[in-house]
């Protein structure tokens, strides 16, 4: 049995909200970054599914996915660099320990 558009959209939406939940509850910076990657991947799934099932002759969705993957890599590179620097100065990558800026 082939999955329909509904099943794929269910998975991608679930993935999106798992990502949002992870981003809001996790305290470890790398895990938060992973949650953002989950969100981006759910978007990729969405684009591919819409492209295949609804708009097979319009390849915008497919190209969009490729660009999202590339940008996500760039974003992760900068974020990891910032996290490494944070680790050097704070000795921890827990958001609870980054507390110089308040109020």
């Amino acid at each position: 049995m082939h999955p329909g558009l509904g099943q794929i959209l269910f998975i991608s939406t679930a993935l999106f909200f798992i990502g949002v939940y992870g981003f809001l509850t996790r305290r470890n910076l790398v895990t938060m970054l992973m949650s953002i990657e989950l969100i981006l991947n759910s978007v990729n799934l969405n684009f591919i599914a819409f492209n295949k099932y609804l708009w097979a002759n319009r390849l915008d969705g497919l190209f969009f996915t490729i660009f999202i993957i590339a940008i996500a890599a760039a974003e992760a590179a900068v974020a990891i660099a910032i996290i490494i620097n944070l680790y050097r100065s704070h000795g921890s990558i827990d958001v609870e320990n980054a507390e110089e800026l308040k109020y």
Binding site: L29, G61, E75, A79, V95, A98, E100, L101
Partner: peptide, 30 residues
């Protein structure tokens, strides 16, 4: 120390917001 903390807050919140933006665009495309 505050500079790296600021950068961390900036990159995480902007990445999260662009994730939300992308989800909107993907529905728009659909």
């Amino acid at each position: 120390k505050i500079s790296s903390e600021a950068a961390m807050k900036m990159i995480l919140s902007s990445a999260f917001s662009s994730g939300i933006l992308l989800f909107g665009i993907s529905i728009l495309y659909g």
